[in-house]
């Protein structure tokens, strides 16, 4: 059982929680993830570690409300507990040896996971460019944090309501074409974004690392639910990843596998919202 020590609502659908988990904080490295379960009836869901503080013994997670569990998680407050919190799982991100300059590309809530990547690279003295993409101004997150750990930080919005207008891939291509040399691109965000970032870098042969988020139960290699096809071979994202070479991943298959429970997810979330409405009404009466 872990205690929530800090909560921050980053935008209407994205929440940050910092929890006390000293054993995990001691080992955690950028790219790894945790699995949590809210209570006895809860499901197990994986979330990538957004930050860790070895001295305070805390782990930070940032997540978007997509299904029942993330909805319930967002309803928790400082001082509340999460029943199970397991990690650090998966392999840490490995950059090409001797990398001097990298581009970290984040999309939406994926920026939460892109952030520790930028932070780690920056701390190691690597020159870091960040391209963070959002739908619009009202959901921009972590801008100050990104600026603090990068040499250049570009905020992109689909509708142009903040930063520059356009997709992250437009900016990335522009930078590459302007002659910037990247030893690696780290792309984390919605699957289509990672797919198109990988397509963008492929002709330039730039090593592109993506962080996958398939369906999982145990996170230790046991269920095989997280299997993805990488370079034509079956890999388990929980033990072989979650990072993979973006040029080798079958993104379409991943998208399809991740959609298995979407209808059930939406239904559960809806049911929860109805229950909450009902409770609120009862409290008012």
């Amino acid at each position: 059982m872990v205690k929530i020590v800090r909560k921050q609502v980053l935008n209407p659908s994205v929440t940050l929680l910092e929890v006390e988990a000293p054993l995990i904080a001691k080992k955690a490295r950028a790219g790894q993830f945790i699995i949590l379960r809210l209570d006895e009836q809860g499901e197990r869901i994986p979330l990538t570690i957004a930050d860790y503080d070895r001295e305070k013994g805390t782990i930070t997670i940032i997540f978007q409300k997509v299904g029942l569990t993330t909805q319930l998680l967002a309803d928790l407050n400082e001082g509340d507990h999460i029943q199970d919190f397991v990690g650090p799982l998966g392999l840490p991100t490995e950059l090409p040896e001797g990398a001097k300059r990298v581009c970290v590309v984040g999309g939406g809530v994926g920026c939460a996971i892109a952030y520790p990547q930028a932070k780690t690279c920056h701390a190691e003295g690597i020159e870091v460019d960040v391209i963070a993409g959002f739908r619009s101004k009202d959901i921009v997150i972590l801008e100050d944090e990104f600026k603090a750990v990068s040499d250049h930080c570009y905020i992109m919005t689909d509708d142009g309501s903040y930063g520059e207008q356009g997709f992250v891939t437009v900016k990335l291509k522009e930078l590459i074409d302007s002659g910037v040399h990247y030893d690696a691109v780290i792309a984390i965000g919605p699957i289509p974004m990672m797919k198109f970032v990988s397509k963008t870098t492929e002709p330039y042969h730039i090593k592109t690392i993506v962080s996958l988020n398939p369906i999982m139960i145990d996170g230790t290699g046991m269920c095989g639910g997280c299997r993805v096809t990488v370079g034509g071979k079956m890999k388990f994202a929980c033990v072989d990843g979650p990072d993979f070479d973006g040029h080798e991943v079958d993104f379409d298959e991943l998208m399809n596998r991740n959609a298995v429970y979407r209808a059930q997810e939406a239904e559960e979330k809806e049911r929860h919202a109805c229950r909450m409405d009902q409770l609120a009404k009862e409290m008012i009466q």
């Binding site: 290699g221 299997r227 298959e253 399809n256």
Partner: peptide, 24 residues
């Protein structure tokens, strides 16, 4: 703990489980 698969086409389609995942 690690489940084996057959290595046949279509094994990553939605609706294919390892017995471990299904039973868990």
């Amino acid at each position: 703990g690690l489940p084996m698969f057959m290595g046949i086409e279509g094994e990553t389609l939605a609706g294919v489980y390892s017995a471990n995942e299904y039973l868990t």
